[in-house]
């Protein structure tokens, strides 16, 4: 049993989110320390203001201003801060109904411990020092001892230099493991051996093996060394730089059926002018120090394979 492989996989991207008019007004308002809500056809004030009425599905556009103080409707003490969450220390999650609003907003409450928070407690917004037009312009809520104050008042939603979008960076960390068959393959390739697996039912040899014969739906187990030479079954000439790849253009990207394999794998062809690569060309892998995969494939010098010998593999 080969060693099972495992490695971190980081999925990270700064998503660029355009905003609809209600969202734009709300988030710009936060930048200006103003909290906006939106009024429904039955005069309910929704804060945060959603674009569409959850009950009637009507488009909502009728903005109002509500208070920066409010009342906790439920809470949860978060003893362990997690990445991306507000405050950088333990805090309470709260749903808070701002004064003048009929619905609650989710945010963080800065208190020392769970004993300092209860449903019905009065809180107010603590504004972030630097505000950009995002939900995080509310740094958090903090305890407040004033009574319920303001009624909602109409607001035209107009501000100077309104934000039209937010950038929402998101990072998730995974520990990826490719499983038994792929681990075995990757391990053998690192030893410069191309080892596929044969299906016990249809006898086809799969490389890379995927743990299952996809046509029979059964596990492949019998290891079969294939190649190292193979035949170019088809290809394209790449004239456009692929992301994160430093390969001189143009180059040839080919499907290569290794001798003994029943389907082609993919690789780059070099050691021959790009415009002389052809279907049927016989090639072999070229390894570089420390490479996990063959760096490229080069011509073996054998005569080209006859089309009929590989056309089932195209």
């Amino acid at each position: 049993m080969p060693e099972l492989l495992k490695a971190p996989l980081v999925v990270e991207f700064p998503f660029t989110r355009s905003l609809g008019p209600v969202q734009s007004a709300f988030l710009t308002g936060l930048r200006e320390r103003t909290v906006l809500g939106v009024k429904t056809s039955d005069d309910k004030i929704l804060v945060p203001p959603v674009e569409y009425d959850p009950v009637t599905a009507d488009e909502l556009r009728d903005l109002v201003e509500v208070g920066a103080t409010g009342t906790v409707t439920t809470w949860a003490w978060n003893p362990e801060h997690r990445r991306g969450q507000p405050l950088g220390k333990p805090f309470a999650w709260i749903l808070v109904k701002l004064d003048g609003a009929d619905t609650a907003l989710l945010h963080a409450l800065d208190v020392d411990g769970p004993d300092a928070v209860h449903t019905g407690m009065r809180v107010r917004i603590r504004w972030a020092e630097e505000r950009t037009g995002a939900i995080t312009d509310i740094a958090c809520f903090e305890p407040y001892d004033g009574d319920e104050a303001s009624e909602a008042t109409p607001h035209d939603g107009e501000f100077e230099d309104k934000v039209s979008g937010i950038v929402a960076p998101a990072r998730l960390d995974y520990m990826y493991s490719p499983g038994r068959a792929a681990s075995a393959y990757i391990t053998s390739v690192a030893e410069r051996k191309m080892v596929g697996e044969r299906c016990p039912s249809c006898s086809k040899v799969y490389i890379p093996p995927r743990g299952a014969c996809p046509t029979c739906g059964v596990a492949t187990r019998e290891e079969v060394e294939v190649g190292p030479s193979g035949t170019v079954t088809t290809f394209c000439i790449v004239n456009v730089k692929a992301k994160n790849l430093d390969i001189e253009l143009p180059y040839v990207y080919a499907h290569i059926a290794l001798d003994g394999a029943d389907l082609a794998l993919h690789g780059r062809i070099a050691g021959i002018p790009y415009d002389q690569v052809r279907m049927g060309l016989r090639v072999e892998p070229v390894w570089t120090e420390g490479g996990r995969y063959p760096d490229h494939y080069r011509p073996t010098g054998e005569p080209d394979a006859d089309y009929d010998t590989y056309k089932e593999l195209v």
């Binding site: 989110r17 945060p48 997690r82 991306g84 999650w93 749903l95 939900i135």
Partner: peptide
Amino acid sequence: PGSVRDVLTRQLDPYYVAPLWPDAVALAAL
């Protein structure tokens, strides 16, 4: 393989809620 508490935050309103990363246990606790 992932931290499911954090992964599930990506289900939330991407404008008003997901940027705060409230995890699945926190929401259930509320």
